Computed example of a mutant assay.
Amino acid sequence: MIINNLLLKLKDRSPENITKAREVLLSMKGEIEVLVDLTVAANIRSGPAAYDILLIAKYNTMEDLEAYLTHPVHVEVGKYIAGVVESNASVCYRD
């Protein structure tokens, strides 16, 4: 199993904006066949070093992860996220 964790810090860190970004990310669930599981959580502990959203995506293989990255649904979601994100960090690992 390949697990990709993505942390997002948004430009506008208001609760409404965080909720909207979370909903957009969750819209991929069930729409991309190679995406085995998707969790999107909003941070409940704020602070200057904190990120706002954690995305955990699971795939069976690295090839599936690569297919996800170019899937049209992910590309559209990525366009929205690129417009609202200030910074991000990721960790991808095999479990």
Rank of each mutant, 00 (worst) to 15 (best):
M1Q: 11
I2Q: 12
I3A: 05
I3P: 00
N4K: 15
N5L: 05
L6H: 05
L7Y: 15
L7H: 13
L8M: 10
L8N: 05
L8R: 04
K9H: 04
L10F: 04
L10M: 06
L10K: 06
D12Q: 01
R13K: 11
P15H: 05
P15Y: 04
E16T: 07
E16K: 14
E16H: 11
E16P: 02
E16C: 02
N17G: 09
N17V: 00
T19E: 14
A21F: 01
V24T: 10
L25V: 14
S27C: 08
M28I: 09
K29T: 09
G30I: 11
E31D: 00
E31H: 12
E31I: 12
I32Y: 08
V34D: 02
V36H: 13
D37A: 12
D37Q: 11
L38Y: 01
T39V: 01
T39D: 13
V40H: 09
V40L: 12
A41S: 15
A41L: 13
A41W: 07
A42P: 02
A42M: 06
A42F: 01
N43P: 03
N43A: 10
I44N: 08
I44E: 07
R45F: 10
S46E: 15
S46W: 10
P48A: 03
A50I: 00
Y51S: 14
D52I: 04
I53N: 05
I53A: 08
L55D: 07
L55S: 13
I56R: 15
I56H: 06
A57D: 14
A57H: 05
A57S: 15
A57I: 03
K58P: 04
K58H: 14
T61V: 11
T61K: 10
E63Y: 01
L65P: 06
L65R: 14
L65A: 09
E66S: 03
A67E: 10
A67D: 05
A67L: 12
A67K: 13
T70S: 01
H71T: 09
P72I: 08
V73K: 15
V75G: 00
E76C: 02
V77S: 02
G78Q: 03
K79P: 09
Y80R: 10
A82D: 10
A82T: 03
A82W: 01
G83I: 11
G83E: 03
V84D: 03
V85L: 02
V85Y: 07
E86I: 05
E86Y: 06
S87P: 00
S87L: 01
S87Y: 01
N88A: 08
V91T: 09
V91D: 00
C92K: 13
C92G: 03
Y93K: 06
R94M: 13
R94I: 11
R94Q: 15
